[in-house]
Nucleic acid binder design. Sequence first.
DNA 1: GCAGTTTTAGAACAATTGATTTAGAATATC
DNA 2: GATATTCTAAATCAATTGTTCTAAAACTGC
Lengths: 201, 201
Amino acid sequence: MARPREFDETAVLDAAMQQFWMYGYEATSVRDLAQSMGITGASLYNAFGDKRTLFRRALAHYVETSFGDRVGRFEHGLAPRAALEAFFREIIDRSVQDEDRKGCLLVNSALEVAPHDPDFQATIAEVLAKVEAFFRRCIQAGQRTGEIPSSQSAEDLARLLLGVHLGIRVLARTRPERALLEGLARPALDLLKPSRSSQHK
Amino acid sequence: MARPREFDETAVLDAAMQQFWMYGYEATSVRDLAQSMGITGASLYNAFGDKRTLFRRALAHYVETSFGDRVGRFEHGLAPRAALEAFFREIIDRSVQDEDRKGCLLVNSALEVAPHDPDFQATIAEVLAKVEAFFRRCIQAGQRTGEIPSSQSAEDLARLLLGVHLGIRVLARTRPERALLEGLARPALDLLKPSRSSQHK
DNA sequence: GCAGTTTTAGAACAATTGATTTAGAATATC
DNA sequence: GATATTCTAAATCAATTGTTCTAAAACTGC
C-alpha cells in the first residue's frame, strides 16, 4: 500500500454537502468546495472523481442523514397519524429556523439538476417515490386501526401529503413564515382525522 | 434622435425568458442568450443593462403572460370553485405536456435566485402572495354563495392550495405523471366541495 | 531502509464566464 | 446634407470555470 488519506471522507463529504445545499450545483465552484472541505483541488479529484460525481455522493449522503433518519425515527416509534404530524412539525420547525433558507437539498436538486440529467432524474424520482411510500404506509396503517378515515384513498392522500411537503419546502425558501407553513399543512393533516364535524374548535 | 432598434424588444425578451426558463439563471450564458435572442452581446448590454437586469425583465414578462393571464381568464369568467378547478386542470395539463420539463419559471427562480438575492426574494414573495390572494378570493366568494363549505378558514384553504400548486410544479419536473399530479390535487379540491359524505362515488 | 505507490500542495491548463471596447453603419434632427 | 446620436458587429478584457500536471512528501510491505 501507500500513503493514507489525511482527511476523514465522511467529514469532507459533509462539508461538500453543506456547500451544495447552500448555493446549489452550478453556483458552487470546485475551489469553493475544496476550501470548505479543507482539502486541495487535486485531493478532491483524486478522491471523488469530478464535480458531478462529488455532488452525487453529497446528495446520497444528504438523503441518508436527512430523510432516512427522519423516517426511521418516526415511523416505528409513533402511531401512524402522530408520525405524520411529527414529520410535518419537524420540517416546519427546521424551515422557520433555517436562517440561510437552504431549504431541502433534494427538492433544490429536483429543480436544478434533475430536468437536464437523466441519472439524477432517476435517483431523485426514486427518493420522492420513497417519501410518497412512507406517507402511504402511515396512512394505510392508520386506516387499518381506524384512526385515519378510509373515506379517501390512501394513494391520493399520500400524493397530497407529498405535494404539501414539496410546497412547504419551496415556500420556505422565500417566505419562511410559521403561520403560513402551518396554515398550509393544517387542512391536509385535518383530512387524516376522523369525524370532521368535531375537529374544529 | 438616432438610429432605431432593429429588433422587437418584447420578442427578444420572450426569447430570453424561454432560455432562462429552460436552463435557469446560472446555467444560461450571455452568449446563449444573445444567440437565442438573435442579437449581439453588445446590443444585449446596451438594451438591458446586464444579465441580472435582463433576467429581472424576463421574469416580470413571464409573470404577466403566464400567471396574470391565467387569473384574468378564470377569475371573472367562472364560478369560484370552477375557476380553481380550471386553474389546477390547466397547470396539470401543461405539466404533463411539457416535454422539456421546464416547470414554472417563478417556482424555479424561487429556489435558484431568491434565497441569495433580496431583490428577487421580495419580488417573488410578492407574486406568491398574489397567487395565494387569488386562491383566497375564489374561496371567499364561494363561501359566500355556499358552493364552498365554510367549515374551514379561507386563509388556510388558500395556503393549502398554494402549497399544492407549488408541489405540483416541483413534482412535474421530475415525475410528470398525470395520475400522480391529479391524485395530488384531488383531495385538496374535494375539500372545496360541500357535503363530504355525498361526494365520493 | 529501499522500492513502490498514493497522497499532497500549488502552479498551470484551456475553455468559458460576464462585460467592455473599438470601429463602422444607420438614422433623425437641424 | 452635415451633425450628432445610437445602433450593430466582432474583437477583446480580466476573471473564473472545471480539470490536470509536476513535484515533493508520506506511508506500507518486502
